[in-house]
Write a protein that binds this DNA or RNA. Structure first.
Length: 487
RNA sequence: GGCCCCGUCGUCUAGCGGCCUAGGACUCUGGCUUCUCAAGUCAGCUACGAGGGUUCGAAUCCCUUCGGGGCUACCA
């Protein structure tokens, strides 16, 4: 039944920014974007801000920033414009009003004078009687007298869509054929009594006007699809021209409930601040409900666009697993060029107050990054690992001080200081050579014992980057001073 | 309650009637490597929700059942 396969693909991501975009939203955006890029189509970004109670300008801006940060660039939408704009529904109110009026005129919709209280009472009764709740059609066929009576009471009507008898069947690209009997799809409201549109009206009108060919969205919207199709029909769109639907499975939290603050971090801002790379987030999210097959997992953004197809999207929900995200983030960090790694690392060093960004600091950071690149999972771990190189008032961590208080440690430090001070060339090879000869060969100590004391004395912690490289970077003067200071 | 969707290792998944005594990844456990932590590497643990069919043959098709989720708004 569906056409549109021959025309150019146009997909949209249309969030309702009633809060920060969360992981689930982003997964949807990612799939929308990947599908558009895969097909060489157009990616439209539209803001559904018809819920004026909950949507705020701040959230809208945050959504824009999040998509940008992730690298999900759009071809039409806020900031870039496009010939089918505006892309904020709040700026399209007159369009919806026109269509609502047209539906009224055509008899597809009607004025409903029922108050919220009356509606609630009806639902209450339906629940009590154990019948399917929903609008009972009270205002479907009002007489002019009844209307006049309502009007004289000061009632202002909403616009309600008439659902005809019968059923709606459509093919979901992920789930196959889905049918809804209209007796379970009650007449629904298109516009509030102040004339403002509801999601059901705006989404359908915009998808048609913006020539959207594929609707990839969360599965929570699956059961609203018959209503959307009903609006298309009223708009005079032929069934063959309806967009194709693909309802994406949910992203769940650890406790098998929809992901929320309670069971996992949901805001992308949190992941950004913790030091996750956009590519890692996208790669991981892509794996939630989709798979490239062939035992592949690690894909770049480019590969994602090449490999992504709706056919490979799952129909079952996926649980968000922080551990796996961390693993992928670590992989992505290790794959970074030194140049890129530095660019990502610098803001974290600054923010932590580890450095201010002087030329000397920058030079040292660039030399130090290679030795920590494979030992971190998030960028946020960088400052703690490199802090010993920049710290002004060096102190040994409390839990490590006692570990070098014994005689043997003292001896190790004493001898190390003596031998190290004779070195003419200060680099990790010469440092290692002289220490091995003094401590391992001459004293016969186990490496892990001998070097542990030095590590603590020099870096202040029993966990650090490789010791000899660390000492080379720290420099002879500071290294020796710290070793002596620990005695 | 009704309607709709979903159900392979703890988690994400491969699988689309025989290649499956079910593969990969993450996690976890153990080994190797090793100056700590990592990284790397080797090995191990663990799954087709259940019950009926169809078929020579089912994780793959059908039915039932159980379980999970969504919707049921003048939210989206």
């Amino acid at each position: 039944m569906p056409a549109n396969t021959s025309s150019k693909v146009r997909v949209r991501f249309a969030p309702s920014p009633t809060g920060e975009l969360h992981v689930g939203n982003i997964r949807t955006a990612l799939f929308d974007w990947a599908y558009a890029r895969h097909t060489g189509g157009t990616f439209i970004f539209r803001i559904e801000d018809t819920d004026t109670e909950r949507v705020t300008p701040e959230y809208i801006q945050a959504a824009i920033n999040t998509l940008k940060w992730l690298g999900l660039d759009w071809d039409e939408g806020p900031e870039v414009g496009g010939e089918n704009g505006p892309y904020l529904q709040s700026q399209r109110l007159d369009i919806y009003a026109e269509w609502a009026a047209k539906f009224l005129e055509q008899g597809d919709a009607y004025h409903c004078y029922c108050s919220s209280e009356e509606l609630e009472a009806v639902r209450e009764a339906q629940r009590a009687a154990n019948v399917a709740p929903g609008y009972n059609g009270h205002c479907r066929e009002l007489t002019p007298q009844e209307i006049a009576a309502y009007l004289s009471e000061g009632r202002k009507p909403v616009v309600r869509m008439r659902m005809p008898d019968g059923s709606t069947t459509f093919t979901d690209l992920i789930r196959g054929e889905v049918t809804f009997e209209h007796k379970f799809v009650p007449d629904f409201v298109l516009a509030r009594n102040d004339g403002s549109p509801l999601y059901t009206l705006a989404v359908a009108v915009d998808d048609v006007l913006m020539k959207v060919t594929h609707v990839l969205r969360g599965e929570d919207l699956l059961s609203s699809t018959p209503r959307q199709l009903r609006v298309y029909d009223a708009m005079g769109v032929k069934a063959a021209d309806y967009p194709l639907f693909a309802h994406l499975p949910f992203v769940m939290g650890q406790d098998n409930a929809k992901l929320s603050k309670r069971n996992g971090e949901t805001s992308i801002a949190w992941y950004r601040d913790a030091g996750y790379l956009p590519e890692a987030i996208c790669n991981y999210l892509a794996l939630l409900g989709w798979s490239p097959g062939e035992d592949r997992e690690n894909v770049t953004m480019k590969e994602l666009t090449e490999l992504f197809t709706v056919e490979r999207v799952h129909s079952s929900p996926a649980r968000f697993d922080m551990k796996k995200l961390e693993a992928i983030n670590g992989d992505k960090i290790r794959a970074l060029s030194l140049e890129d790694f530095f660019t990502w690392a610098m803001p974290f060093m600054r923010k932590a107050g580890t450095v201010t960004g002087t030329d000397e600091e920058v030079a040292l950071i660039k030399k130090a990054l290679p030795i920590i690149q494979e030992r971190i999972v998030t960028l946020g771990e960088i400052p703690a690992l490199l802090n010993f190189l920049f710290v002004k008032d060096f102190v040994i961590a409390a839990d490590s001080v006692e570990k070098i208080a014994d005689e043997q440690s003292k001896k190790v430090l004493q001898i190390s200081a003596e031998r190290l001070s004779t070195l003419t060339e200060w680099n990790h090879e010469s440092i290692e050579a002289v220490l091995r000869s003094a401590l391992i060969e001459e004293l016969g100590l186990k490496p892990r014992i001998a070097f542990s004391a030095l590590r603590i004395a020099v870096t202040g912690s029993h966990i650090s980057p490789p010791l000899f490289e660390s000492m080379e970077l720290l420099g002879a003067a500071k290294s020796l001073a710290r070793i002596r200071g620990a005695l």
